[in-house]
Structures are given as C-alpha cells and as structure tokens.
Computed example of a mutant assay.
Amino acid sequence: MMRRSYVVVAAVLLQSTGAWCAETAKEKPEWKPSLLADEAPAQKPWEDGATFAYKSVDGKASAIADAVFKLERIEDRKVTGGFSRVSWGPGVYVHRNSDAAKPNNDRGLMLSVAGLWFDDGPADGARKSWSWSVEAKGGRKLTTEDVAGKKAYYDKDSRRVTAGGQFVYAPSAGQLDPSNLKQQAFMFFTASAKLYLDRVSGGVTSASGRITGVEAMARFDIAPLGLDPSVTKVNKTGLGFVPSFAVWGQRQQDFSASGARARENRNLWGAKAQMTFSQLDGSGVVPALSLERTKGADLLTGREDSDVTKLSLTIKY
C-alpha cells in the first residue's frame, strides 16, 4: 500500500555547472567539492540540490535527507571537437527517512571515478556527451524482512559497487536573439544504464545476502525560456529567472539474489517543475523553488515503494 507524504524541504547545492560548455575546460587539474542529491556524476547543465527536510503528520515528526558530498580531483582536456574530463575522489552519502511506516537509513563512505567526453558542435547546433562512472560504497543501511506477516527492520553492514554509462543529447544549445531579447528553449534528453552489486551482512543472519542487477533510466528536461536569466530579468531589480521542467522513469531488474534476500523488479517515476532565480550582479548565490513528485522504489538509495510530493527551496553557490 502506497503511503503519500507532502513535504516542505530546504536544500543546498554546491556545484558548478560550467562543464557543459567546452570554453570552460581547464587544462590544470583541480580539487572541487560538490553537494548533490544523488551519486551520479555532474554531467548536466543543472543539478538537483541536496535535500534536508522535516515533516509532521498527525503529530508525528520525521526527517528526510538525500545528500552526497564529494571532493573530486577533476582534469579537463580540450580535444578535437570538444573536451574530455576525468574525475575521481572520495565522498560521504546519506539517504534517510525517519518515517516509522517507511524508514530508510542508508549512509556511509564512497570512492568514485568517472569520465566524460563532450561533443562541442556548432554554436546553434546539437550537443552530445558520453560519460561513464564506477563507484564503491561502504556503510550501513536498513534492510527488511517479513516476520509473521509484519516487516522487521535490521541495520546492517552494506557494501555496494556500481558501474555504468550515461548519454546526454541536447537538440539545440539555445541562442540569444538581440533583436527581441528572446532566447529559444533549451532541452535535453538523458539515458543511462548501470550494473549494481548490493551486499548486506553482519548482526543477525536475517535480511543478509547479495543482490546483483541492472538499472536503466530515461529523463527529459526543458527550460522553455532558455538558460540565460538576463533574458527574463525583472526590470530594475537585477533578478532573473529560469523556469524548467523534468520528467523521468527508472527501472531496476535483479539478476540474482542470495541469503535471505529475494529478487525483485523496481520502478521509480518522477516529475519536477523548478524556478531558478539569479542575481545578475555576479553575487554567485542562485536560489530556486521546485515542486517534485516521485513514486516507486530504489534499491541503491534504500527507498521502499512510496509516493512522495516535495516542495523545495534550493540555494546554489
């Protein structure tokens, strides 16, 4: 039975997104921190901020957190027709929901390595990028087991390895028309696939075991007014805004399971509307307001089958 939650959240994003343009490629390697909502490498024009939330339903309080902090060493190289990137580094992840009906507590340390090749086509043409990543994670997570018709939860040692690739295609980069100060819409499609191995052990033998499988995801993003906030600025305020919308679907299919764990297939669907605001004076603080709805389960974040609507305020540095 799905349980519906309405959550007001505050989120923080520490992430530079200039890598979408080849002109920003830097030959000198640098260490770069990031704070995001998931473990995926940052290869899109904009990213989802880490979410920290509090909710109260019928007098019962609970907390929600989806945060991944990484410190990566990044090296960009200009190549014929675009640029390439290699990054690696450690990180800390937390995916937590203290709701008694659908608890989740997946946390630990991680090490990741990723690569990207970006096709820098004509100024007004399509953009394409290909990327790959390998991640190893270790920590603790809640696992479940049916006992006498009721779910029992166990906090277990967790080890996880994932390896996969991602393709991003933008039909048009969006161009500014000085004659009428309008910018054409910017949209992009994302498709990704990864293999996963998830192992839990320790403590009681219940709920221990290993699961292997594959995940596939497709996503569509669009910014109807383009990505340049100066085009849609509010007169005399110096404040610009970029509305954007996204829909996505994800499926995880287990190949094998051992111990007390069972093979499953999981679907996760989502949609989001976001309004990003930007001061045009170079202050560097970019807030955004978004409304997001997700439905389904995700093994790799410890999420059980649930239905959640979130209104979030994010701040990007």
Rank of each mutant, 00 (worst) to 15 (best):
residue 80 T to K: 09
residue 284 G to Q: 07
residue 219 R to K: 14
residue 250 Q to D: 15
residue 141 K to Y: 09
residue 272 K to S: 11
residue 206 S to Y: 07
residue 52 F to T: 06
residue 256 S to F: 11
residue 221 D to L: 05
residue 210 R to F: 07
residue 190 T to R: 03
residue 193 A to N: 05
residue 215 E to W: 06
residue 55 K to C: 12
residue 124 D to N: 09
residue 87 S to Q: 11
residue 185 A to R: 12
residue 82 G to I: 02
residue 235 N to W: 14
residue 291 L to W: 10
residue 205 T to R: 13
residue 27 E to M: 14
residue 251 R to Y: 02
residue 93 Y to E: 03
residue 181 L to W: 15
residue 144 T to D: 14
residue 187 M to P: 07
residue 313 L to Y: 10
residue 39 E to C: 12
residue 146 D to L: 13
residue 121 G to L: 00
residue 93 Y to N: 06
residue 12 V to Q: 07
residue 289 L to Y: 08
residue 185 A to K: 14
residue 7 V to Y: 06
residue 132 W to Y: 08
residue 105 N to Y: 03
residue 59 G to R: 08
residue 246 A to Y: 04
residue 149 G to D: 13
residue 46 W to D: 03
residue 192 S to Q: 06
residue 104 N to W: 01
residue 163 A to W: 04
residue 31 W to I: 09
residue 234 V to T: 11
residue 269 W to S: 05
residue 298 D to K: 05
residue 177 D to F: 08
residue 136 A to T: 14
residue 152 A to S: 13
residue 80 T to G: 13
residue 223 A to K: 05
residue 264 E to L: 09
residue 306 S to W: 02
residue 154 Y to W: 12
residue 8 V to N: 15
residue 287 P to F: 07
residue 123 A to E: 11
residue 289 L to C: 09
residue 199 R to T: 02
residue 139 G to A: 07
residue 167 F to Y: 08
residue 285 V to F: 07
residue 104 N to L: 08
residue 255 F to W: 12
residue 65 A to M: 06
residue 98 S to P: 01
residue 59 G to M: 11
residue 252 Q to F: 02
residue 16 S to R: 07
residue 8 V to T: 13
residue 226 G to S: 05
residue 317 Y to K: 03
residue 317 Y to I: 06
residue 210 R to Y: 11
residue 133 S to E: 07
residue 216 A to N: 03
residue 205 T to Q: 12
residue 209 G to S: 12
residue 106 D to R: 03
residue 296 G to Q: 09
residue 251 R to E: 09
residue 157 D to N: 15
residue 75 E to R: 10
residue 259 G to F: 00
residue 205 T to P: 12
residue 4 R to W: 12
residue 132 W to P: 07
residue 47 E to R: 08
residue 105 N to I: 00
residue 268 L to G: 02
residue 170 A to V: 13
residue 215 E to A: 00
residue 106 D to S: 07
residue 60 K to G: 11
residue 73 R to G: 11
residue 266 R to Q: 04
residue 244 S to W: 06
residue 218 A to T: 13
residue 42 A to R: 10
residue 174 G to W: 04
residue 261 R to Q: 04
residue 207 A to F: 05
residue 10 A to V: 03
residue 96 R to F: 00
residue 72 E to G: 04
